Simulated scan of single mutants.
Amino acid sequence: MEAADEDRLLQAAAHARGQSHSPYSRFAVGAALLDEQGRLHAGANIENAAYPEGLCAEAVALAHLVMAGGRRVVAAAVVADSGQPITPCGGCRQKLREFAAGDAPVLSGGVTAEGGAVLRLRATMAGLLPHSFGPDHLT
């Protein structure tokens, strides 16, 4: 993946983070996905007073991807205001695995003072979810 694509992904995730509905945890997260057509799909976490009913940023971004006709995640980025890199939770790793190959890059970004994003960690789907179960197991 080119540096320009990484930057586009990180900035889209940072922008999405600004739309987060996180009144309970106050931990806003944004995610952005690059699809097979080169389009970006973003999402933010949406919390709910009934905590388990909330949505992760990655799940919201995946819904946007599917609704736009995308079928493959080429790369993903997750951005939060954290001193450490954050990566998708276990459930979102599995959701992403449905659409992403093992070598798909997953970027973790932090928030800059200006509200943009800076790369903190570069991983792959296989690195985050080794020995995963996916669609290829069902064919």
Rank of each mutant, 00 (worst) to 15 (best):
M1S: 15
E2L: 10
E2N: 14
A3Q: 14
A4M: 04
A4F: 07
E6W: 07
E6G: 04
E6M: 10
E6V: 03
E6L: 07
D7I: 11
L9E: 01
L9G: 04
Q11G: 02
Q11W: 01
A13I: 08
A13S: 01
G18T: 08
G18V: 02
Q19V: 15
H21P: 13
P23V: 06
Y24I: 04
S25Y: 01
R26S: 07
R26Q: 03
R26H: 06
F27P: 00
V29I: 07
V29K: 02
V29Y: 06
G30H: 04
A31S: 10
L33W: 07
Q37V: 09
Q37K: 11
R39Q: 12
R39C: 04
L40F: 08
L40N: 05
H41V: 00
H41E: 08
A42T: 00
A44N: 08
N45D: 02
I46Y: 05
E47S: 08
E47M: 06
N48A: 05
A49N: 11
A50L: 01
A50E: 13
P52K: 01
E53I: 14
L55C: 13
L55Q: 14
C56R: 12
A57T: 02
A61E: 14
A61Q: 05
L62F: 03
A63T: 13
A63R: 03
L65Y: 13
L65C: 04
V66T: 08
V66M: 01
M67H: 15
A68L: 00
A68E: 11
G70P: 04
R71L: 09
V73G: 11
V73N: 01
V73A: 10
V74A: 02
A75W: 07
A76F: 05
V79Y: 09
D81V: 00
Q84D: 15
P85A: 05
I86G: 10
T87S: 13
T87P: 07
P88R: 09
C89Q: 07
G90K: 00
C92Y: 08
C92K: 00
R93S: 07
Q94Y: 03
L96H: 06
R97H: 14
R97A: 14
E98L: 15
E98F: 12
E98S: 13
A100H: 10
D103V: 11
A104H: 09
L107A: 03
L107N: 06
S108P: 03
S108V: 09
G109T: 00
G109A: 02
G109D: 11
V111N: 12
E114T: 07
G115T: 12
G116S: 01
V118W: 14
L119I: 05
L121K: 15
R122L: 09
T124Y: 06
M125I: 11
A126I: 09
G127V: 10
L129H: 07
P130T: 06
H131Y: 14
P135R: 06
D136L: 12
H137Y: 00
L138P: 12
